[in-house]
Design a protein around this nucleic acid. Structure first.
Length: 856
RNA sequence: GGGCGUGUAGCUCAGCUGGUCAGAGCAUCUGCCUUACAAGCAGAGGGUCGGGGGUUCGAGUCCCUCCACGCCCACCA
């Protein structure tokens, strides 16, 4: 046991064991294992756009705890890692980091080098140059991510690392899309689309959030065509008046019932619009009658579609009012010249500028009633954006998800039922999302750093692009970029020419690729043998706010492609909250960087903190818990050193599981059996926290009570048989504790294990009740009674403010006969540990101990 | 507006299918160099388990209701 240091410390264990695990391939996946022998993890690929924070450490540790447990249970753990580097977050980071902006019309500049400092104003660069910078920057981040994850001992098989922008991931993504397209599950359509004017791209329903914003009601009078007065409506979007195509009120609203079918003129523009009934109109809001504009919000889209109204689109893709020719088809009005004059005051202005101006115009024209009334109301934003979303009509790609098809919706709800949710109530998030879907999944983005749609369109002889007959590549060509690759049967010279082709310019949303993480990690079609061994996966760990995006989308893709779930269990982790119980996030500036914590407390201590967070429960960030974790790690080191010293050189050889004769030794093993059982069942239910809590509780009793009680015997005080019994029990317990703690404290347990065992503790078998057979008939009360008495002796010494070394002259224990009988089975250990000269007992109803201390 | 969750010692949290369930750790206080550990050890004080009803022989534990907080969803007039 020369390997045991004099002063054990958790510091520095990380570097040594990380290197060792890497060289030994401790966490390598054995791909000869069959599916039932495999435990596969659909690891969440973190977004590569900056740095990881403690929240990542928290949730990724949870997954690792389960992976390590399963590995020790004998499963072949498939535990890949991925980096989600494609998509808007990376683009945005690159723009800020280098001070560049992507202009797809520019040619590639092979000599371009980014500025040292972010350029201001931003330098426009070509799409290929832009993509190069994205790749360069993400690579830097990804190296830091990998180092951090290794440092917290994620037992990932790093040979199975993927990135979502890699050619392999693009191939999977494009292949899945083409198959969706071939089966009719993907389609393109020209339709009103929720649009972010800052990023210049369409966004999906799942990426929208409401934010409370100040606004104001303006009451506008619409003159009735029959001259019988005005209809007053309230609106927060007066700038959309030129886009008004109808007024709408509830069919049961008696105030407006007589008016349904009649018309009014729009103020300033004189367009004649009809008053229509629709259930979505709310009699309680405003004046109970609203103007329908194309388009102010998604309700407008519903009304427009269901009432089959005309289209007057005025918002362009930059969020400005576009030029309109009043009097032309679709823009009929009573007096085109007047309408045009008014509109020209607005055209070219951004929406909020147009709003101010039109209010002035309305006011001057006497069309406003009363003062504007300021309110705050929910406004829809792209979750990554900072300007309100608009709705513009554009051609986009969609994947069906049940949002417009109730049969499919029911099937998707069924998948949610089939999936096992941990915690179980998280299934409600999925259900409410699927039930609330109001359209198919919009997957195209008018962006640059993503997976291109593998699609071209034929250009007719007249130069018209035929979007309804896309040209697709064969799967063996994938991945392709249609903007640089030509379709089969064409050559590059035909690009953009009559009779030739054009590329689809868009890229897929990042969720359209990350919804395929099981397929990407499992190398679907590229390595069918591997895929068959790992798919569907066992767990999908993730946080709850992306159930509607990542989880749901992954279920949709697997449903279509494999008619199965992509994973059996969904393990949802909570959030890390700062001490004010707010979610930690970069935008709030309350993020704590993880590397400093890992270095200060040690990785095991930080993992201990993470492991204390219950599955699915938001947890406060608390460094005090890390201190406790560090103390536990330290205790494990010292206790191991001590126990191995007590048991002697032969601790490893044959002692574990040997014969145990003393009742108090059997009592400890009986307790240990209970903990092994609970820890095992807890881990089977992904409750790593309970496993730790129970293990830890017994471990402290082990060191504070059991070891104290038996150390005299273990040192040699007693019969050979009794000494041997203590040695066997200590070694058995130590081996069990090392393995029970191994998932939580991988570094110290590996260290302590190495002092007396061969191989990695992380490849050792998970302890079982059967190994602890000697405790099967043990009575735990023996240990309890002995510890109770010892505790009373300690109390007497403490209250006398004397050292625990002080001898007790006499100790008289009063207790029930049953307990006294059990105490008798351990009395020699008790007198030894308590330094008692004379121990006697008297029967009594209540437990009490009378201690007379020896005078010093 | 609908749904889900949380509310237990100053703090962070355990308390699984109702009967040692009133707990742990931290913090506080009092002590102790005890042949593993002073980044340690021994001990003490501290809570009418969010409020109010109810079921029960018995309720943090089940039911109802209210309050507070968090999250998810919901058509921006």
């Amino acid at each position: 046991m020369s390997r045991i240091p004099d002063k054990p410390t958790p510091d520095g264990l990380e570097d040594r064991w990380i290197a060792r695990w890497e060289s030994d391939g401790t966490y390598h996946f054995d791909r000869s294992a069959t599916r039932d022998e495999v435990f596969a993890v659909d690891t969440p690929p973190p977004t590569v756009s900056g740095s990881l924070h403690v929240g990542h450490i928290f949730s990724y540790t949870h997954t690792d705890l389960v992976a390590r447990y399963q590995r020790m249970r004998g499963k072949h753990v498939f535990y890949p890692m991925g980096w989600d580097d494609n998509g808007l977050p990376t683009e945005r980071r690159v723009q800020n980091y280098y001070g560049v902006t992507c202009d797809p019309s520019l040619p590639y500049d092979a000599d371009f080098t980014p500025p040292e400092e972010p350029a201001d104003p931003a330098i426009p660069i070509s799409r290929p140059n832009f993509v190069e910078l994205c790749l360069r920057l993400t690579e830097i981040d990804e190296q830091a991510f990998e180092e951090l994850f290794k440092h917290v001992a994620l037992s990932v098989d790093w040979r199975h690392l993927y990135t979502t922008i890699s050619p392999e991931a693009q191939r999977v993504s494009q292949r899945a899309f083409l198959r969706n397209l071939a089966r009719g599950e993907a389609y393109s359509a020209e339709a009103p689309t929720i649009w972010d004017v800052s990023f210049g791209t369409a966004v999906a329903q799942a990426e929208i959030e409401d934010r409370e914003r100040p606004g104001a009601y303006h009451r506008i009078a619409f003159p009735r065509t029959d001259g019988e007065g005005d209809i007053e409506i309230d609106t927060t979007r007066p700038e959309l008046l030129p886009a008004c195509v109808a007024l709408v009120a509830h069919p049961d609203d008696e105030r407006y019932q007589p008016l349904f079918g009649s018309t009014v003129g729009t103020p300033l523009f004189g367009a004649e619009v009809e008053i229509r009934p629709h259930e979505l109109a709310d009699p309680e809001k405003g004046t109970g009658i609203a103007m329908i504009c194309t388009f102010g919000d998604t309700t407008d889209v519903t009304w427009w579609r269901e009432l089959q109204l005309g289209l007057r689109a005025i918002v362009d893709r930059d969020g400005r009012l576009k030029p309109v020719e009043w009097g032309s088809p679709g823009w009929e009005c009573g007096d085109p010249a007047t309408a045009q004059k008014a509109y020209d005051e607005l055209a070219g202005k951004y929406l909020n500028q147009a709003k101010r101006r039109i209010v002035e115009l309305l006011d001057e024209g006497g069309h406003l009633r009363g003062e504007e009334r300021k309110i705050t109301h929910p406004v829809k934003f792209f979750e990554k954006g900072d300007r309100p979303l608009e709705i513009v009509t554009s051609r986009q790609w969609y994947i069906r998800n049940g949002g417009r098809d109730d049969d499919l919706r029911q099937l998707m709800l069924g998948r949610g039922e089939e999936l096992v949710w941990w915690p179980h109530y998280m299934g409600a998030r999925y259900r409410s999302w699927v039930e609330g879907l109001n359209g198919d999944w919009l997957i195209s983005r008018q962006r640059y750093f993503g997976v291109p749609f593998p699609v071209w369109y034929p250009v007719g002889e007249g130069g018209a692009v035929d979007h309804d007959s896309p040209i697709v590549p064969s799967e063996d060509r994938l991945p392709i970029d249609p903007t640089t690759d030509a379709p089969d049967g064409f050559d590059e010279s035909q690009r953009g020419h009559p009779g030739g082709f054009v590329a689809d310019p868009d890229v897929m949303d990042t969720w359209a690729t990350s919804s395929l993480t099981p397929e990407i990690a499992g190398q679907w079609e590229d390595d069918p043998d591997l895929f068959a061994r790992v798919f569907p996966m066992d767990i999908r760990p993730q946080s709850h706010e992306i159930i509607r995006t990542w989880l749901f989308a992954t279920v949709v893709r697997a449903h279509f492609e494999f008619d199965s779930l992509p994973f059996r269990n969904s393990t949802i982790s909570g959030w890390i909250l700062d001490p004010d119980r707010k979610k930690m996030s970069k935008s709030k500036g309350n993020v704590i960087t993880p590397m400093g914590l890992l270095e200060q407390y040690g990785s095991d201590a930080v993992r201990y903190w993470a492991a204390n967070g219950r599955p699915g429960v938001d947890t406060a960030f608390d460094e005090k818990v890390m201190k406790v974790g560090r103390r536990l790690a330290m205790k494990l080191l010292n206790a191991t050193k001590f126990v191995l010293n007590l048991t002697g050189e032969d601790a490893a050889a044959g002692l574990v599981g040997g014969e145990v004769t003393e009742p108090i030794d059997r009592a400890l093993l009986a307790e240990l059996r209970g903990v092994v059982d609970v820890a095992t069942r807890s881990f089977d239910d992904f409750d790593y926290a309970r496993a730790l809590e129970r293990t830890e509780a017994l471990f402290w009793r082990f060191t504070d009570d059991y070891v104290e009680l038996v150390k005299g015997r273990a040192y040699g005080d007693g019969s050979d048989e009794a000494i041997r019994s203590a040695h066997v029990t200590l070694a058995t317990a130590l081996s069990t504790f090392h393995r029970l703690f191994a998932p939580h404290l991988p570094f110290v347990t590996e260290e302590t294990w190495s002092w007396w065992q061969d191989g990695s503790v992380h490849r050792a078998p998970w302890p079982t009740v059967d190994e602890l057979a000697a405790g099967a008939d043990g009575d735990p009360t023996v240990l309890t009674v002995a510890a109770d008495v010892l505790s009373e002796i300690r109390r007497a010494k403490t209250e006398a403010k004397t050292s625990l070394r002080t001898e007790a002259e006499t100790v008289v224990v009063s207790d029930t006969d049953a307990r006294l009988a059990l105490l008798a089975q351990a009395d020699r250990d008790v007198t030894g540990a308590g330094r008692v000269r004379s121990l006697s007992t008297t029967p009594a109803e209540e437990f009490s101990v009378e201690v007379t201390l020896a005078t010093a």
